[in-house]
Amino acid sequence: MRVGLFHTCLVDLMRPEIGFSVLKLLEAAGCEVMVPEAQTCCGQPAYNSGERAVSRDLAEKFLREFEMFDYIVVPSGSCGGMIRHHYADLLRDDPELNGRYERLRERVYELTDFLASVVRVETLPSTFSGQITYHDSCSGLRELGVKQQPRALLSRLPGVQLTEMKDCEACCGFGGTFSVKYGNISTAIVDEKCANIRATGADAVVLGDLGCILNIEGRLRRTGDSRTRVLHIAQVLAGDA
């Protein structure tokens, strides 16, 4: 199957190694992976800020670049949620574009959902071991139903011990532009998340959204925690952590 990888602008600009881990996983699962070179942002920051014209242009751009693939895989619940749900709002007044979008949207998958539900991987290219805890990122959980899929994949790694944290489904405080507009509230939320992570005694917190990674890792480091690793699940499943 031909898979288009939407690596997200955050991964591209901040942590490209995550993108390479995603590529490794998809190819190990037998996929022919294509990475459109002109891809940029899914449009979520503009959409959340009320810039509908900008986000609509990016939705159209995404359609042009990805509609030819059998599946589109996104290593981010927030970007996946934007594409799977909010493009419908942006394109609803254009019958031609909306029709193209409706034919595409059911082929868009968050990474762990694709690996667990579509290709149904049995083995993973990883020897990762350690005690971890898992943070459920808001958009992946609430917009895409990503909950058991990453845990099922992690259970295939015999060296991994998963200890669930308190309120694992609670927001980390990032929320895209929320953390910029409401810094004090965001800090209070991420402080609670960091306390719950530390309480598990885990060596690492694992999750599926880079925005949350940057927020949690940044706060852990600023409050003196240099021990707890903050990892994208692709890095763990690919054995790149």
Rank of each mutant, 00 (worst) to 15 (best):
L115M: 05
R227M: 06
E65M: 15
D136Y: 13
G159N: 02
M82R: 08
D89W: 09
D136S: 09
A170H: 04
A88R: 12
V206D: 03
R64M: 09
E32S: 15
V180Q: 11
M165C: 03
V35R: 11
E143A: 15
R84C: 11
R2H: 07
R52F: 10
Q161A: 13
Q149D: 07
A204W: 02
V206G: 01
L210C: 09
S186N: 07
L141E: 10
C31P: 07
D93V: 03
R120S: 13
Q131V: 13
L141M: 12
E27Y: 06
L115N: 07
E37V: 15
M68L: 10
D203K: 09
M68W: 13
C172M: 11
F128R: 06
Q44H: 08
V33M: 10
F114V: 08
K181W: 04
K193V: 07
G130H: 01
C79H: 02
A241S: 10
G211Y: 12
Y101H: 10
N184G: 00
T200H: 02
S137Q: 06
L90S: 05
S49C: 08
Q148Y: 07
F66N: 09
I132W: 00
R198M: 07
Y87P: 03
H85W: 05
Y87S: 06
L141T: 12
L153P: 04
L207Y: 08
R120N: 11
L23H: 14
I132G: 02
R142K: 11
L104M: 05
A202M: 03
H135C: 06
R227Y: 08
E192N: 11
T228F: 07
L13I: 13
T187P: 00
S186C: 07
C194R: 03
G140S: 04
G19K: 11
R151M: 01
D225Q: 12
L210D: 01
T228P: 05
R120M: 12
H7A: 15
F66K: 09
Y87R: 07
G4K: 13
E96C: 00
R92V: 10
I185V: 14
T177E: 11
A29S: 14
I189V: 15
T40R: 15
V236H: 01
F20G: 01
T228Y: 03
R222Y: 00
L153D: 01
L153T: 02
F20Y: 14
V121R: 03
I18F: 09
L115I: 12
G145H: 10
D136R: 04
G208H: 03
G183Y: 02
R142P: 00
